[in-house]
Computed example of a mutant assay.
Amino acid sequence: MDMPKNAFKAALKAGKRQIGLWVTVSDPAQVEMLAACGYDWLMLDTEHSPAQVPDVLSMMQAAAPYPVSCGVRPGWNDTVEIKRFLDAGAQTLLIPYVQNAEEARAAVAAVRYPPEGVRGVSGASRSSRFGMVKGYLDKAAEEICLLVQVESVEALGKIEEIAQVEGVDGIFIGPADLAASMGHVGNASHPDVKAAVLDGLRRIKAAGKPPGVLTLDNSFLGDCAEAGAQFIAVGLDMILLREAALSLRAEWAD
Score class of each variant (00 low, 15 high):
residue 33 M to G: 05
residue 122 S to Y: 00
residue 52 Q to C: 00
residue 116 E to P: 01
residue 70 C to H: 05
residue 10 A to Q: 15
residue 124 A to R: 05
residue 137 L to P: 03
residue 249 R to T: 10
residue 31 V to Y: 09
residue 134 K to R: 15
residue 154 E to M: 10
residue 59 M to E: 03
residue 245 A to G: 04
residue 81 E to Q: 15
residue 146 L to Q: 03
residue 18 Q to K: 11
residue 207 A to E: 08
residue 212 G to T: 14
residue 132 M to R: 12
residue 5 K to A: 15
residue 11 A to K: 06
residue 103 E to C: 01
residue 151 E to M: 14
residue 93 L to F: 02
residue 19 I to N: 00
residue 136 Y to V: 04
residue 151 E to C: 12
residue 157 G to I: 10
residue 104 A to L: 00
residue 118 V to W: 03
residue 169 D to N: 10
residue 120 G to S: 08
residue 218 N to E: 15
residue 236 L to M: 14
residue 160 E to L: 12
residue 120 G to Q: 01
residue 123 G to C: 05
residue 47 E to C: 05
residue 185 V to K: 07
residue 118 V to G: 03
residue 101 A to M: 00
residue 152 S to N: 06
residue 138 D to E: 12
residue 153 V to T: 11
residue 51 A to C: 02
residue 155 A to F: 11
residue 235 G to Y: 04
residue 39 Y to N: 04
residue 29 A to E: 02
residue 189 S to F: 08
residue 134 K to F: 04
residue 77 N to Y: 10
residue 154 E to G: 14
residue 154 E to N: 09
residue 25 V to C: 03
residue 249 R to K: 15
residue 179 A to F: 11
residue 155 A to M: 09
residue 11 A to I: 09
residue 76 W to G: 14
residue 22 W to H: 06
residue 49 S to Q: 02
residue 224 C to V: 05
residue 179 A to P: 05
residue 86 L to Q: 04
residue 13 K to I: 11
residue 221 L to F: 03
residue 90 A to K: 02
residue 144 I to P: 02
residue 138 D to R: 13
residue 51 A to F: 05
residue 7 A to C: 13
residue 94 L to T: 00
residue 165 V to L: 09
residue 191 P to G: 06
residue 14 A to Q: 13
residue 232 I to A: 01
residue 9 K to W: 14
residue 91 Q to R: 15
residue 33 M to V: 15
residue 124 A to D: 10
residue 249 R to P: 10
residue 219 S to Q: 07
residue 96 P to F: 00
residue 37 C to V: 06
residue 242 R to T: 11
residue 156 L to W: 06
residue 166 E to L: 12
residue 59 M to Y: 04
residue 126 R to T: 09
residue 193 V to I: 04
residue 218 N to R: 07
residue 206 A to P: 06
residue 213 V to N: 12
residue 49 S to A: 12
residue 42 L to A: 07
residue 188 A to S: 15
residue 238 M to H: 08
residue 228 G to T: 12
residue 151 E to I: 08
residue 188 A to R: 01
residue 64 A to F: 01
residue 141 A to P: 04
residue 117 G to H: 07
residue 139 K to F: 12
residue 2 D to Q: 14
residue 48 H to A: 09
residue 31 V to G: 13
residue 76 W to I: 10
residue 48 H to G: 07
residue 194 K to N: 05
residue 93 L to G: 04
